[in-house]
Amino acid sequence: KFGRVHERAEGPAKILAIGTATPFHWVDQSSYPDYYFRVTNSDHLVDLKEKFRRICNRTMISKRHMFLTEEILQKNPNLCSHNEPSFDVRQDILVSEIPKLGKEAVLMAIDEWAQPKSKITHLVFCTRSGVDMPGADYQLIKLLGLSPSVQRVMMYQQGCFAGGTMLRLAKDLAENNKGARVLVVCAESSAIGFRGPSEDHPDNLIAQALFGDGAAALIIGSDPKMGLERPIFEIVTTAQTFVPNGDCHLALHLREMGLTFHCTKDVPPTIAKNVESCLIKAFEPLGISDWNSIFWILHPGGNAIVDQVESTLGLEPNKLQATRNILREYGNLSSACVLFILDEIRKKSGREGLKTSGDGLDLGVLLSFGPGLTIETVVLR
């Protein structure tokens, strides 16, 4: 008597548009150690500064975009301390800036989509910054002038794996609601975790050397309108798992001094060791076991992770080039990073006149991972 209210779509979910945005301000990685130790009044920690310089040199990052300028840091000195309470200051900045950054990426996506924004039916927003109620999803709806009846899902504090999570959720929403057009937004800022150095917490140096700011937005829907919408990728399958006891290797915690970062040297080999089982589960039903026969979007948690995944799986050097390019130009953008790589690989395919948006290949994989050593596996066509 009370059956399904919403009719299912006929076809699989497809990515119809991609937009990205970054803050205008950026830092050069080669000179960042001098800048970082100067603005945090830590130049007296000579040995720690040299250690940080070595870490920065190993990241293979060229530059990173950041909202925090020297002027902002001078006005808010607690942000430059390692342990002073600064959460309220971070909140005041990020509750406002995260939706604005997301808006810039959304406008780029809508411009490519070339359809009225009134056709957006759902919003899925993800960030690890600016936790608030009502959330960044609500603020973004107002900034864009979208209908208050847009169906919203707000996900805070997920971390680097969440780019894949957003695709998984959007696929379910698009395929189970005929005519749905799902706006996916990942907006991230390193301002939540920026803090001064400490000899007692070397993990913090890794975070300060890796993370950048950026937002990515996608429009996802099934059954694209012929002649009006141009699909870029099809989302074939999605899956999530985590490595048992992985939280002892990688975890982040909200504290009075901001978001703290805990990471062990076992993260790269542990991820590399567990990736292939995810690939087998995803691609065995499709008859694929040659990992060089697919295109790759791999989250660059750090250069060591990229190198070890490449080595463990025997990947050809060009397979992870898009990942390395984004890491070099932006650093680790947390949940937004794989979506930047997705954009990079389709643009490169277009520039080179390849037959598909995925490096000329039919199928590919998007792998994202993060806290708890959670792994998201997304098969794309």
Score class of each variant (00 low, 15 high):
118 S>G: 13
299 H>C: 04
257 M>L: 07
318 N>M: 15
7 E>A: 09
112 E>T: 09
72 I>Q: 01
356 T>I: 06
371 P>Q: 14
3 G>S: 14
55 I>N: 15
369 F>K: 15
309 V>Q: 06
16 L>G: 02
280 I>E: 06
280 I>R: 11
7 E>L: 08
90 R>G: 06
283 F>Y: 03
27 V>R: 01
68 L>R: 12
10 E>H: 06
23 P>Y: 04
256 E>T: 08
375 I>K: 15
240 Q>V: 11
24 F>D: 10
344 E>K: 10
141 I>R: 02
349 S>L: 10
327 L>W: 08
373 L>Y: 14
118 S>C: 01
250 L>E: 09
281 K>A: 01
148 P>Q: 07
320 L>T: 00
336 A>W: 07
73 L>S: 12
378 V>A: 15
350 G>D: 10
333 L>G: 14
352 E>I: 02
269 P>W: 11
380 L>K: 15
60 M>N: 00
112 E>A: 06
140 L>F: 05
344 E>R: 04
145 G>C: 05
337 C>G: 15
349 S>T: 03
76 N>F: 14
53 R>I: 11
269 P>G: 02
40 T>W: 06
310 E>V: 07
38 R>M: 04
140 L>A: 02
306 V>W: 01
125 F>R: 08
313 L>P: 00
63 K>D: 09
54 R>E: 13
68 L>M: 04
236 V>F: 12
140 L>I: 11
4 R>V: 15
65 H>Y: 06
335 S>I: 05
274 N>P: 02
313 L>I: 01
52 F>W: 07
105 A>V: 08
107 L>G: 08
241 T>I: 13
323 T>I: 06
127 T>M: 03
71 E>R: 08
75 K>T: 06
1 K>N: 09
246 G>R: 09
5 V>G: 10
305 I>G: 06
326 I>C: 00
321 Q>L: 10
82 H>K: 14
272 A>C: 13
58 R>E: 15
286 L>P: 04
275 V>Y: 00
259 L>N: 04
297 I>T: 05
49 K>W: 03
333 L>D: 08
48 L>D: 00
360 G>T: 01
280 I>G: 04
43 D>N: 04
233 F>M: 04
381 R>L: 00
76 N>K: 08
123 L>W: 07
115 Q>R: 07
264 T>A: 11
136 A>G: 11
357 S>L: 06
65 H>A: 13
22 T>H: 15
319 K>G: 02
295 F>T: 05
344 E>C: 00
342 L>W: 06
326 I>R: 08
129 S>T: 14
294 I>P: 03
111 D>C: 01
33 P>G: 10
97 E>A: 11
242 F>Q: 11
368 S>T: 07
248 C>V: 10
234 E>M: 05
243 V>K: 11
132 D>E: 10
324 R>G: 05
306 V>A: 11
343 D>A: 02
12 P>V: 02
304 A>Q: 10
363 L>H: 15
329 E>V: 03
356 T>M: 14
249 H>R: 11
22 T>I: 08
377 T>M: 02
60 M>Q: 12
329 E>Q: 15
276 E>N: 00
95 V>D: 08
26 W>N: 03
329 E>L: 07
345 I>E: 08
53 R>S: 10
295 F>A: 05
111 D>R: 12
338 V>F: 00
273 K>Q: 13
30 S>V: 09
84 E>V: 14
41 N>A: 06
113 W>N: 07
338 V>M: 12
7 E>D: 08
97 E>P: 06
130 G>K: 04
325 N>F: 06
33 P>Y: 12
294 I>T: 09
74 Q>E: 07
13 A>M: 04
281 K>F: 05
239 A>W: 06
355 K>D: 04
310 E>C: 07
340 F>P: 14
106 V>G: 14
239 A>Q: 05
254 L>S: 13
67 F>V: 13
40 T>G: 08
289 S>V: 08
21 A>S: 06
99 P>V: 15
3 G>R: 10
317 P>Q: 01
327 L>R: 07
19 G>F: 10
348 K>D: 00
97 E>S: 10
129 S>Q: 03
69 T>A: 07
81 S>K: 09
256 E>H: 11
252 L>Y: 13
57 N>F: 02
370 G>R: 14
93 I>P: 09
323 T>W: 02
98 I>E: 07
253 H>V: 07
324 R>T: 09
267 V>A: 10
271 I>D: 10
257 M>W: 04
116 P>G: 05
5 V>R: 09
73 L>F: 06
348 K>R: 12
100 K>Y: 02
46 V>A: 07
336 A>D: 04
292 N>D: 10
367 L>C: 14
279 L>H: 01
373 L>Q: 15
366 L>P: 15
142 K>Y: 14
86 S>D: 12
36 Y>T: 00
298 L>Q: 03
27 V>C: 04
245 N>Y: 08
335 S>A: 10
238 T>G: 12
26 W>L: 09
53 R>V: 02
328 R>C: 05
331 G>Y: 01
138 Y>E: 15
37 F>Q: 05
85 P>A: 15
34 D>R: 01
235 I>H: 01
289 S>F: 05
250 L>I: 04
305 I>E: 02
263 C>R: 14
309 V>S: 03
300 P>K: 11
72 I>A: 05
343 D>Y: 02
123 L>Q: 01
380 L>M: 11
105 A>I: 01
308 Q>C: 07
262 H>P: 14
324 R>H: 00
319 K>T: 05
377 T>P: 15
291 W>T: 07
289 S>A: 06
231 P>F: 00
38 R>G: 09
346 R>P: 00
294 I>V: 14
258 G>W: 01
13 A>L: 02
370 G>E: 12
245 N>P: 14
57 N>Q: 03
138 Y>Q: 13
295 F>L: 09
25 H>C: 08
273 K>L: 03
81 S>L: 12
334 S>C: 13
251 A>G: 13
320 L>A: 03
143 L>C: 08
316 E>K: 06
142 K>M: 09
123 L>D: 04
337 C>N: 15
5 V>M: 13
314 G>T: 02
290 D>E: 09
266 D>I: 06
301 G>T: 04
94 L>C: 09
116 P>E: 12
113 W>S: 02
342 L>A: 08
274 N>F: 15
95 V>R: 11
46 V>M: 10
46 V>E: 11
132 D>S: 07
82 H>N: 05
98 I>L: 13
9 A>C: 10
373 L>H: 14
41 N>K: 14
351 R>F: 01
108 M>Y: 08
240 Q>E: 12
348 K>W: 00
323 T>F: 00
104 E>G: 04
342 L>T: 04
284 E>F: 00
330 Y>Q: 04
87 F>S: 12
23 P>D: 03
123 L>I: 12
376 E>F: 00
142 K>L: 07
361 L>V: 08
22 T>C: 08
359 D>G: 05
89 V>P: 12
59 T>M: 00
259 L>C: 15
239 A>V: 05
322 A>R: 02
81 S>F: 11
349 S>R: 10
282 A>D: 12
262 H>W: 12
273 K>H: 00
100 K>Q: 05
19 G>R: 02
279 L>E: 01
256 E>P: 01
369 F>V: 13
15 I>T: 08
91 Q>V: 04
300 P>N: 07
26 W>P: 12
282 A>G: 02
302 G>E: 15
6 H>V: 11
17 A>H: 13
